[in-house]
């Protein structure tokens, strides 16, 4: 398969009170076109930092990232239109309606108006929010916000979707709906990269899973192969074996 994201020797060092903290330490991997790529790791493993670098929000200290052939840090303007990001914070304007939030994002991505209107109606129906289109999102439940947040990220029809902890704090029904949505987008040919703390989610959803620990990539493979290699019954056991039992800050 062809890689759509190429990460080589990626390093990120932060300065905190005069001390250097290596959040990401010489990490290399590829994400293939059309796959669902999960990232797991304990707190402070470096997932969010990699996520921020892949999505052009922060610049790497060392190494390189290519997204769809474009260099992160040099060609960010070419990368942003082809990626969609579902942030962990739902980040919707509470005093705008669902439709207005979608229109805002569509407009920022320069989606032509007729196409945008068509997509808004389609996606609102897809996530079951069509009857709430003209309600302020401030009054939405967590699940409704999450569903809206997802479609805000795909209104410009991106090739790659970055999804930061897609189902944290959601009820099982909404979680199922979100997984279904993820598979639907993937079925349309979109590449999905997501981080999660839920091992079941990583197991069920991912084609391949990257396990991060203390800034390093400690394993990368299909969930089944990871389980087989470490002779574990489930991904949680694999995770504990690879990252240890120590509770992280």
């Amino acid at each position: 398969m062809e890689p759509i994201i190429e990460v080589r020797n990626l390093t990120k060092i932060f300065l905190s009170r005069g001390k250097k903290i290596t959040a990401v330490d010489d990490v290399s991997f590829d994400v293939f076109n059309g796959e669902i790529f999960g990232m797991i790791g304990p707190n402070g493993a470096g997932k969010s930092t990699i996520f921020s670098m892949l999505t052009t929000l922060i610049k790497p200290t060392g190494g390189s990232i290519k997204v769809a052939g474009f260099d992160v840090g040099k060609e960010d303007d070419r990368i942003r239109p082809i990626i969609g990001i579902v942030p962990q914070k739902l980040s919707l304007y509470p005093d705008l309606t669902a439709r207005e939030n979608l229109e805002l994002m569509g407009n920022l991505y320069d989606v032509p108006k007729p196409v945008m209107e068509e997509r808004i109606d389609y996606y609102l129906k897809l996530v079951g929010l069509e009857t709430h289109a003209d309600r302020f999102t401030g009054g939405f439940s967590g699940g409704m916000k999450q569903r809206l947040s997802v479609i805000c990220a795909v209104i410009h029809d991106p090739e790659i979707i970055f999804w930061d902890e897609p189902t944290t704090g959601l009820d099982p029904q909404t979680r199922q709906a979100i997984w279904k949505l993820a598979r639907k987008f993937n079925g349309e040919g979109k590449t999905l990269i997501f981080t999660t703390h839920y091992m079941e989610e990583a197991d069920k959803l991912s084609d391949r899973v990257a396990v991060m620990n203390l800034g390093k990539l400690v394993a990368l493979d299909a969930p089944g192969i990871l389980k087989e290699k470490s002779e574990s019954a489930n991904l949680e056991d694999v995770f504990i074996r690879l990252t240890g039992e120590e509770v992280r800050d």
């Binding site: 929000l57 239109p81 942030p87 980040s91 994002m105 320069d110």
Partner: peptide, 13 residues
């Protein structure tokens, strides 16, 4: 505070 500015800055703007 509510993260909306980050979402805006994730777009090509």
């Amino acid at each position: 505070q509510d993260g909306t500015i980050v979402r805006i800055l994730m777009t090509p703007v």
